[in-house]
């Protein structure tokens, strides 16, 4: 059989989501952001909510998310995405609103906004990329940087004396009654990508069902910032990040009684 005979629509088993815009991604090869973008595009597409969804992009590497996923977007100031999303969702209750934020954005400069949005139980999806570092500005320490981890502002490794402890903000968020669903995922293997997609789909479905805040942390790699190859970064994440940030569900109100 000739190859031309095989390349036909009816033989298609997998394709890029039509919501993924045909442009060259600005993400480094190996970065988790690209995989999570793919998942978000697929979920919005599969749920058929492109016309209802509004994304709020952060300040951080995902600042240009609006160039990559074909929905309406608003670009927030650093850390303010949950407040921006609150303004959108409150005045447009028919819309599906999500924020997409890094750990510097969500857990440092925007700690107040995320806690209060979640505590009010805003009807939002929050996608939280925890790569333990400030990717965009060149690899400085984040609140989630591990003790001993080398970054450009902790060249000898993070110390508790100077910088305190890694902030487990996802555990904090899970405590809040307004939060309906809170989970920690990763995207470094085919199996974890599938699990993460299920979690993100569930989060969007929750918002469609007006259940309140659904929070999905994706423990991520930043191989450029960590100064590793993509493979080394995946291994390092499993070995070090997963002990500090255990994977799996922290809360699911659907499973309560």
């Amino acid at each position: 059989m000739e190859i031309q005979d095989i390349i036909k629509p009816e033989n298609l088993v997998y394709s890029k989501s039509k919501l993924q815009v045909d442009v060259i991604s600005h993400y480094c090869p190996g970065c988790s952001h690209g995989v999570v973008h793919k998942i978000v595009s697929e979920v919005i597409d599969e749920l058929g909510i492109q016309e209802k969804t509004i994304g709020v992009s952060p300040v951080g590497c995902a600042v240009f998310a609006y160039n990559l996923i074909d929905i309406d977007w608003q670009e927030a100031a650093h850390g303010r995405a949950p407040a921006v999303a609150t303004g959108i969702a409150r005045t447009n209750p028919d819309k599906i609103v999500f924020t997409y934020q890094g750990d510097g954005d969500l857990a440092s400069i925007g700690a107040a906004e995320i806690l209060h949005a979640c505590n009010r139980g805003e009807n939002l999806v929050v996608i939280f990329i925890n790569n333990g570092i400030y990717g965009m500005t060149g690899g400085q320490m984040a609140p989630t940087t591990l003790v001993g981890q080398v970054t450009s502002t902790t060249p000898m490794g993070r110390t508790v004396e100077l910088n305190g402890y890694p902030l487990k903000i996802t555990e904090l968020i899970a405590q809040l009654p307004g939060v309906h669903y809170c989970t920690r995922q990763s995207v470094h293997t085919a199996a974890t990508v599938r699990r993460c997609k299920n979690a993100i789909r569930k989060a969007f479905q929750n918002v469609m069902d007006k259940k309140g805040t659904s929070f999905v942390e994706v423990t991520s790699t930043c191989n450029s910032g960590w100064k590793m190859t993509p493979v080394q970064a995946n291994d390092w994440m499993v070995e070090h990040m997963f002990t500090e940030y255990p994977q799996g569900e922290l809360k699911d109100n659907d499973k309560k009684g």
């Binding site: 509004i54 709020v56 608003q74 927030a76 100031a77 303010r80 407040a83 921006v84 999303a85 609150t86 303004g87 959108i88 969702a89 409150r90 005045t91 447009n92 819309k95 107040a112 906004e113 209060h116």
Partner: peptide
């Protein structure tokens, strides 16, 4: 937060 909520609502 309040000005950013305004920013979000105004964008719609």
């Amino acid at each position: 937060a309040s000005i950013n909520m305004v920013y979000g609502a105004a964008a719609t």
